[in-house]
Design a protein around this nucleic acid. Structure first.
Lengths: 109, 109
DNA sequence: TATATTTTTCGTAATTGTCGAAAAAAGGTT
DNA sequence: AACCTTTTTTCGACAATTACGAAAAATATA
């Protein structure tokens, strides 16, 4: 079922957009993922995911004014929607409840 | 990069296997996902993921004795490996640390 | 042997994850 | 103006994961 589920990378990007708040555009997200998550990712991948999340209504976007710097093109800034917030909260609480009921023996050797 | 990441469904199945501990075989996992997670999934999908997780060394398996019931075929029982446990703990702590730093404004309207 | 039941394996299609290269937009150079 | 450099987004393609239906295997019972 398309659009109803949320993939692993999609969830990560959603969390990073929430963190960056008003600097959440492609390159900002890429850098945050590489620094905070110690995971390499290309800018194309980030943009692809951002766009898909917007189509799923988990993100919304607007253009910033162009920055007065060399190459300072306008940025496409993203923000988590209420649906996006719910999706995040749902996966979090689902996983937490599963963690809580794991019997100790499951991880004994 | 194949085998290095862990998908959303893979993580869920890993958590469910840990929960079921010594009843973690295909159908048990399917039922647990449908009941606890309120998510429908076919048995083929579950088996596919179980197998891939074993190839990634996040699960190990052994055959049970056949059950003395009509159709009681031997079950392929799964168990989370130390690598699997690490993978689970890593994604959990990564996400938790991202949750902690989300500014309040990010979810304000 | 034939049938019904439980479980796993196989083949295939849709969605998600991934990247390289091209296109756009802006400021600086000549 | 014409050209180059930088920042950023868009496009096109392919790989990995997610998802099913149908077939095969193994077992008990008739």
């Amino acid at each position: 079922m398309k659009g109803t589920n949320i993939g692993e990378l999609e969830e990560l990007v959603l969390l990073v957009v929430a963190n960056l708040f008003d600097n959440a555009y492609g390159i900002g997200v890429k850098q945050e993922i590489e620094e905070k998550c110690n995971r390499s990712i290309t800018i194309s991948t980030v943009h692809n995911v951002l766009q898909r999340l917007q189509e799923k209504d988990y993100l919304e976007s607007r253009y910033s004014d162009p920055a007065p710097e060399r190459g300072g093109k306008r940025k496409l800034l993203f923000r988590v929607t209420p649906s996006g917030q719910s999706a995040l909260e749902n996966s979090r609480s689902m996983r937490e409840s599963l963690w809580k009921t794991i019997p100790k023996v499951a991880f004994e050797r």
